[in-house]
């Protein structure tokens, strides 16, 4: 079966495709969230060192991973939009930024609430925490810059530059715990080594990671549909949808 993928580079076709995909991802996100919380609070045992406080991990780690991953995806779409002048790619980048910023804030917030009982402090200026804070500023910078420029196509281009330059921060966040002496611990989960956690803890965390993924996809598709409507209001297909009452 040959699918013409280029068809979905057009905002008009992507708008309806995205609309059909949202319920699927939203339901998956909710199901995984319920399962993840159940495993996290009722199956996973108490940690022998951290007691119950470690249960923050079920949101802290997914949020931190998503904050970095979404930034890379945002920069990728922004870069594609810049290079090939494809409108939809830039709209995707714009749609990702608020969700990325939200996850970054959640990672910082939960990290702070975890740091207080375990390290004795809400915040330290160590490399991991500082680079994650810079990530939040990059997201906010991207959104503010785009909001400050009236012409959407120029806003796309300016935003793409910030997004692409800021990508350098992602490996810095990721490797900060190896490159510098940080209060933040090293990775508990890696591709090359066996995880250093009880298996039910790890299962709960991974289920929550997938829930965060599905949530991000659903919410970003929902937002990109609104952005498409805002930007394509002069087109025939939007007024046609509007006349049919099918926006």
């Amino acid at each position: 079966m040959a699918i013409n993928w280029y068809k979905y580079a057009s905002p008009a076709s992507f708008y309806s495709l995205a609309g059909r995909m949202i319920p699927f991802f939203a339901i998956l996100a909710f199901g995984l969230l319920v399962a993840g919380l159940y495993i996290g609070f009722f199956v996973a045992p108490t940690d022998f060192q951290q007691g119950e406080a470690y249960r923050i991990i079920f949101i802290h780690v997914p949020a931190a991973w998503m904050s970095m991953f979404l930034y890379v995806v945002m920069a990728l779409w922004a870069g594609i939009g810049l290079a090939f002048n494809t409108r939809l790619s830039s709209m995707m980048a714009t749609a990702i930024a608020p969700t990325g910023a939200m996850f970054t804030f959640v990672a910082l917030w939960t990290g702070s609430l975890w740091g207080k009982p375990m390290w004795g402090t809400w915040w330290v200026w160590d490399a991991r925490l500082t680079s994650e804070l810079i990530l939040l500023f990059l997201y906010i910078g991207f959104m503010s810059l785009q909001a400050a420029i009236d012409d959407p196509r120029r806003a796309d281009k300016a935003g793409a530059i910030i997004a692409l330059v800021g990508v350098i921060n992602i490996p810095i966040i990721y490797f900060s715990v190896q490159w510098w002496n940080t209060l933040h611990q090293g990775a508990s989960v890696s591709v090359t080594q066996a995880p250093t956690m009880a298996s039910t803890m790890l299962t709960g965390m991974m289920v929550m990671v997938f829930a965060a993924w599905m949530y991000a996809i659903a919410v970003i598709l929902k937002r990109v549909r609104v952005i498409i409507l805002e930007r394509e209001r002069h087109t025939a297909w939007v007024s046609e949808l509007n006349e049919r009452g099918a926006l």
Partner: peptide
Amino acid sequence: AMGGYGIYVWGSYLVTFACVIGEI
């Protein structure tokens, strides 16, 4: 009570859910 860590654990979860619901 979360073994005495209630404020930290629930403070994390409540704010996270508030952010998620707020975004939606």
